[in-house]
């Protein structure tokens, strides 16, 4: 049994090594390939609305998917070196600010699923990770991640991706820091401090590298399997709007001249819940149709970072004043980001 698993691991390694050059050739020639299909195979007339819409779609979907597969594979390997248990150990007893910075950064690389937010919160608090530091982690983890990054690079270019990442981290760091400074510990549900966590020794075993390759492949299967449809639909909406919706459709509502657009986008975004894969193609349409970058970023952060379902889950461990402080502080941070970017661009 064990031997057969080792053999499959070796096969997987070989598969990965073979796939990399194929990936590269596909990615570099993607424009040519999609042009070949449009112009030669389908024989469509270049320059018409319909042709260009389909060309955009046929180029953009494989591009985003290719990027997604490669980066998620890489991140899957990186993540196998991190675990919530190790992160907790690293953050226990850390001073504020430095702790907040570390927590936000670890939030990006530690494997995290919003359904584990509660056990993670309890585990952190029990290990003596300060409340504000815990929040820095919980804010950064869903907001700044590889999926958001790939989608932003794919649809807006790397500059916007970097801006989003940096401002997302800043919001996580400062919101957590502020929650720590305000000393809101009394608004954590009382039973939380009585929880005793057991010890596990599962980190003690050393993982061979072939297993890490496997976890990379596993995360590609899991994540790409879950979000590919969002991407296809999102890009289809984008491609459709590309040719058919008037350019300044969103300008009056979400444009730069409308000062109220940033707070309004945040308020609309809070009850909405979506992951990065679902919301980014929609945001790209908003921007193309006249929404300003700051407003669109604020909308996106609000949808991904703050959500009603999350608040309901947090209600189990936090009392209302702390939940309100959390939502209020993060919303204020997003507001600043929105205004600053509308001001700069």
């Amino acid at each position: 049994m064990i031997k057969s698993i080792q053999i499959t691991n070796r096969k997987q390694l070989l598969l990965v090594l073979l796939s990399l050059p194929i990936w590269y050739i596909l990615y570099v020639n993607l424009q040519n390939i999609s042009d070949f299909f449009i112009d030669t195979v389908f024989g469509m007339k270049a320059g018409t609305h319909l042709t260009e819409t389909i060309r955009f779609f046929i180029f953009e979907v494989p591009k985003v998917l290719l990027l997604l597969v490669l980066i998620i594979f890489g991140v899957g390997i990186v993540r196998s070196y991190f675990s919530p248990e190790k992160t907790r150990k690293a953050l226990a007893g850390k001073s504020t600010f430095l702790g907040n910075v570390m927590a936000a950064l670890l939030g990006v690389v530690t494997p995290f699923c919003s359904c584990s937010a509660i056990p993670l919160f309890l585990g952190f608090v029990e290990a003596g990770v300060p409340l504000g530091v815990t929040f820095s982690f919980l804010i950064a983890a869903p907001m700044v991640n590889e999926i958001a990054l790939i989608m932003l690079v794919g649809l807006f270019g790397w500059q916007t991706a970097i801006i989003y990442t940096l401002t997302g981290l800043l919001i996580a760091i400062f919101s957590g820091w502020l929650i720590g400074v305000l000393k809101l510990e009394k608004y954590v549900q009382d039973w939380v401090f009585e929880v005793k966590t057991g010890q596990t020794d599962q980190d003690a075993t050393k993982i061979p590298f072939s297993d890490r390759i496997k976890s990379g492949i596993d995360s590609v299967k899991e994540i790409v399997g879950k979000i590919w449809l969002y991407i296809v639909i999102g890009v289809a909406i984008g491609a459709g709007a590309h040719g058919y919706v008037p350019e300044d459709f969103m300008a009056s509502l979400m444009g730069k001249s409308a000062w109220y657009s940033v707070p309004l986008s945040i308020v609309i975004g809070i009850p909405m819940y979506s992951n990065a894969a679902g919301i980014i193609p929609i945001v790209s349409v908003l921007i193309e149709k006249g929404a300003s970058l700051g407003t669109a970023l604020a909308f996106m952060m609000s949808v991904i970072g703050l959500s009603l379902p999350e608040v309901i889950i947090l209600k189990k461990v936090l009392k209302m004043p702390l939940i309100l402080a959390f939502v209020g502080i993060v919303a204020a941070g997003i507001l600043c980001v929105g205004f600053i970017f509308n001001f700069i661009y």
Binding site: S83, P84, E85, R88, P111, F112, C113, S116, I118, P119, L120, L122, G123, F124, E126, W191, V195, K196, T197, G198, Q199, T200, K316
Partner: peptide, 11 residues
């Protein structure tokens, strides 16, 4: 949740 935590499981 309390029982889950008693096994030291956070994810």
């Amino acid at each position: 949740m309390v029982k889950i935590l008693s096994y030291g499981v956070m994810s």
